[in-house]
Amino acid sequence: MDTHGALRAEVSSHPDRLVLDQGGEIFKTLHYLSHLIQSIKTPLGTKENPARVCRDLMDCEQKMADGTYWVDPNLGCSSDTIEVSCNFTHGGQTCLKPITASKVEFAVSRVQMNFLHLLSSEVTQHITIHCLNMTVWQEGPGQAPAKRAVRFRAWNGQIFEAGGQFRPEVSMDGCKVQDGRWQQTLFTFRTQDPQQLPIVSVDNLPPASSGKQYRLEVGPACFL
């Protein structure tokens, strides 16, 4: 008897077994889909069961505490989930931390960032420049920003700069004081165009030299 003939004979002699096998596969598929839907409806913020954004965790019945969670804005495979800080005290902000506080670099894929932008309506980020005998914004007290003031490049390529269409909020400009001590200038970026943040580069920084130094302190980009 050939192989196909043997298979037909096996099926015809054990039809119930075939039905049971097919039923088992269908049950496994339904169980998987049920589990997937449940995890989407009630995310835990873990790497295995991430939320899209922190706000989804806030909408769950259980009360969540501020802290570190996992999100997956595109709800794809778990390999590209993102570890973030969730700030439920401020409405469920999803805060992306830079790789290091001294660089404007974020370990997030462009695909995930695009989805995070789509799921958000506003973003805030703070960047502090610590400086020693070096101006980065104003030349002196009461003066307008210098021609060599720093510029900030947004995620979408737009520029935040003095006198430009987009300008950062400057809540403190201690760097205009050059007295041989470390000072700091604090920049705040607050926008309802989520695609502008996070900041991806700080340009036009003056060169460091003897007695003149600076260092960056990059804060998280918090999406809501």
Rank of each mutant, 00 (worst) to 15 (best):
H4Q: 09
G5Q: 15
A6I: 05
A6F: 08
A6P: 08
L7M: 10
L7N: 02
V11G: 07
L18C: 10
V19Y: 00
G23N: 13
T29E: 14
S34H: 13
L36E: 15
I40V: 12
I40K: 11
G45I: 14
A51V: 05
R52E: 06
C54E: 10
D59K: 15
C60V: 14
Q62W: 14
Q62R: 15
K63F: 06
D66R: 01
G67N: 08
W70L: 04
C77S: 13
C86I: 02
Q93E: 12
K97A: 12
T100I: 14
S102W: 06
Q112I: 04
F115A: 11
H117Q: 09
L118Y: 11
S121F: 11
V123T: 09
V123H: 00
Q125G: 05
I127D: 03
H130N: 15
Q138H: 15
G140L: 00
P145I: 10
K147W: 11
R151E: 11
A154S: 13
G157E: 00
I159G: 07
E161I: 06
G164I: 12
Q165G: 01
Q165M: 06
R167Q: 09
S171H: 01
D173Q: 01
C175S: 01
K176D: 00
D179I: 02
R181Q: 13
W182K: 06
Q183F: 05
Q184H: 14
P220G: 00
